[in-house]
């Protein structure tokens, strides 16, 4: 029982990081019907900003987190402006290929700055509390708490503000939103910025738990978070959160009972199986093609 609880905590920690990244995929998909495959690398940049801020500037953790989120937000909005906006009316596949290219560019740009994996200094003092045999670390608690807080902020923006209303409107009919006098480009830039900031925050939280950053760390994490978004139902915000936590749980479950080398095989198999049964994900619903 204790073992199960302990593993549940681990699953929550991993799941909250997947969920944060998955939100970035889903936000962009919901408004532009495009998969931003550079998003995993935005997560990586978040990790490196965290490394740089902690190593060279020795900033306190909260400032480091905000700085990483700010930098990745600008990066996300910048990618949209420079790379994706000119392709807004092009076939979706062109934008997707461009996104893959942007991701490779980011990886190699960072590789040029920092050819070796870097060790991130301890950002928070780690304390471990023992609760009746269950050991809970302060880092674990911080990761889950920060991730959940950010998700609540995003949910508030999307559900309760004019900007969120415009974002949801664009996911239904972009031209109609423009005819309401809404500066659609600004709303799209903000959406990219929010998604990227969450990815950047995930990079910081990841560096808290696994304090080594390298330029390719975003590749597998990005794919997995994308899987989480698809599992939950891509374009569906709560689906991304659900998918993230589910994926974290499955990974922890697999490594608890099987050799850890089976982990990724199992995860990707699960995705394929689920997509056969529910092609639109758990919370997604089939969209009718408009004629």
């Amino acid at each position: 029982m204790l073992y199960v609880l302990q593993q549940t905590l681990n699953a929550l920690q991993l799941g909250s990081i997947y969920a944060l990244i998955a939100l970035g995929y889903t936000l962009v998909y919901s408004i532009l019907r495009m998969i931003n495959f550079a998003h995993g690398d935005i997560f990586m940049v978040g990790g490196f900003v965290c490394f740089a801020a902690a190593t060279y500037l020795q900033l306190p953790f909260a400032v480091t987190l905000l700085l990483a989120m700010g930098c990745t937000a600008i990066l996300g909005a910048g990618l949209e402006r420079l790379a994706y906006r000119p392709l807004r009316d092009a076939p979706r596949v062109s934008a997707v290929i461009t996104a893959l290219g942007c991701g490779i560019f980011l990886e190699h740009f960072v590789l040029w700055l920092s050819p070796y994996p870097q060790h991130v200094p301890a950002l928070l003092q780690n304390q471990t509390w023992s609760l009746g045999g269950l050991s809970v670390s302060s880092i674990q608690t911080a990761i889950v708490a920060i991730a959940v807080a950010l998700m609540l902020v995003l949910d508030f923006i999307v559900q309760r503000t004019m900007l969120g209303l415009a974002m949801r409107g664009i996911s239904m009919d972009m031209k109609a939103v423009a005819l309401m006098g809404v500066p659609v480009d600004l709303v799209i830039s903000s959406t990219f910025a929010f998604g990227a900031a969450l990815g950047g925050a995930a990079g910081v939280l990841y560096s808290l738990a696994y304090p080594v950053v390298d330029p390719y760390m975003g590749v597998l994490m990005g794919w997995k978070a994308f899987i989480a978004a698809v599992l939950g139902g891509i374009g569906h915000i709560r689906g991304a959160v659900l998918g993230g936590f589910l994926l974290g749980a499955v990974e922890i479950l697999v490594t608890a009972f099987l050799p850890s080398t089976y982990r990724d095989l199992t995860v990707f198999t699960l995705l394929l199986m689920l997509l056969i049964v529910r092609p639109h994900g758990i919370l997604g619903r089939p969209t009718l093609q408009k004629v």
Binding site: L165, R168, M172, A176, V177, L179
Partner: peptide
């Protein structure tokens, strides 16, 4: 200049009030 487009283009998943709120952007 306000434009009521072809087919009306209302946001079907929004409530009436949400449609109006979005239109109140200006």
């Amino acid at each position: 200049i306000a434009h009521v487009p072809e087919g009306r283009a209302i946001f079907g998943d929004f409530t009436v009030m949400e449609n109006l709120r979005l239109a109140s952007w200006v």
